[in-house]
């Protein structure tokens, strides 16, 4: 079964898609390429256009401009029913009057698959999501996690060319969410199914994805691997949205030195042209007790987080830093003076 699905899966290309709702520009010339078998996450705050993009791909919205291609063929004007795309909705959208079997069999019945074949494939799909034995239950007799699995089984049972997941874990509690994330990842790898996953949760995006596309205000800010997104964000928005960050702006005053507006000089690994306006990102966990750049300041706030200390540091020149230290020794008290450092390698300039 897995073998056949691998041959059916597809690559997706979104080319210059624009969608306007009245005055609001929901998608502003979005282009995106998803490779065959890849899991790409679209990450963005609510209102960033990520759900609209998914609806355009699924066929529930028609773009004002642009093209959606699956394996090179334009599907922009194809109705959803003829796109062969599996989708898991935010609230699962299970058919409440049909049993688990009825729900999973639905897409096969719509394709006029024979009875015995339906029985076999529903069995396979339910086994895949570990729900064998639940065939006769109704959706409301299942827990949230189980409903989720039914929705997933229903979305993959007909060997779709793409799988779309629209914030599917939003309604689950943290523990279950983590389990389901890993499970979806396992399933997606096993089937080799090209998948687009939508979330506003950056942690979830990091756990699941091959690559992440960060969206804001209807445009894609950056598409890159998870490490790339975290370590080398393209702009303020990405740096701020993914993970905790200290972001400053300054000017390259000489090669390898950025001078911040407060007057502080930072050693960085960046040649560039003198006079360039640059952004500087320092991740809180990259600070060490000492380094090429040092910051001494007063602890404004200190929080114990089990594995680490989270500190807010106020420097004499007005700079405020978020710092994470491994939780060793005692938690620094507020008002205490400490010194931290960071090497040029650990600073990202953009």
């Amino acid at each position: 079964m897995a073998e056949r699905e691998r041959t059916r899966t597809a690559e997706l290309n979104v080319e210059g898609v624009t969608k306007r709702f009245g005055e609001v520009l929901a998608l502003d010339g979005v282009s995106l390429a998803v490779a065959e078998g890849e899991l790409l996450t679209i990450l963005g705050p609510s209102g960033s256009g990520k759900t609209t993009l998914l609806k355009v791909v699924a066929g529930f919205e028609t773009p004002d401009a642009g093209t959606v291609r699956v394996d090179g063929a334009a599907i922009t004007n194809l109705p959803p029913a003829r796109r062969d795309i599996g989708m898991v909705f935010q609230n699962y959208a299970l058919f409440p009057h049909l049993t688990v079997r009825g729900n999973v069999a639905f897409p096969l019945e719509m394709r006029n698959v024979g009875r015995a074949e339906i029985e076999r494939r529903v069995g396979d799909a339910l086994a895949l999501v570990e729900l064998a034995g639940y065939e006769a239950r109704l959706p409301r007799q299942l827990s949230g996690g189980q409903q989720q699995r039914v929705a997933l089984a229903r979305a993959i049972v007909f060997n779709p060319r793409l799988l779309l997941l629209d914030e599917p874990f939003g309604a689950l509690d943290r523990k279950l969410r983590e389990t389901m994330q890993l499970e979806v990842r396992r399933l997606q790898r096993r089937l080799g199914l090209t998948t687009i996953f939508i979330t506003h949760d950056q942690e979830e995006a990091l756990v699941l994805s091959d690559r992440i596309a960060v969206m804001n205000k209807g445009t894609i800010q950056q598409v890159a691997t998870t490490t790339e997104i975290y370590e080398r964000p393209a702009n303020d928005f990405v740096a701020d949205f993914v993970g905790e960050s200290n972001i400053f702006h300054g000017t390259l005053t000489e090669p390898g030195v950025v001078t911040l507006s407060a007057g502080r000089r930072l050693m960085v690994n960046r040649a560039g042209r003198v006079g360039d306006r640059l952004g500087v990102l320092m991740r809180p966990e990259r600070f060490a007790p000492s380094g090429a750049n040092t910051f001494s300041g007063e602890v404004l706030e200190a929080v114990y987080l089990g594995a680490s200390f989270k500190l807010r540091l106020g420097c004499a020149d007005g700079l405020e830093l978020l710092v994470r230290q491994p939780a060793r020794g005692t938690l620094p008290a507020a008002g205490q003076h400490i010194e931290v450092g960071i090497d040029p390698d650990a600073i990202h300039v953009f």
Partner: peptide, 27 residues
Amino acid sequence: LDPAIAAAAQGLGASNWRIFWRIYIPL
């Protein structure tokens, strides 16, 4: 009815006629 249910049926390959008989009427 949650409109997502009809959308889901559509995405799973159901024609409008079948959505009507299999989803809307029973629900």
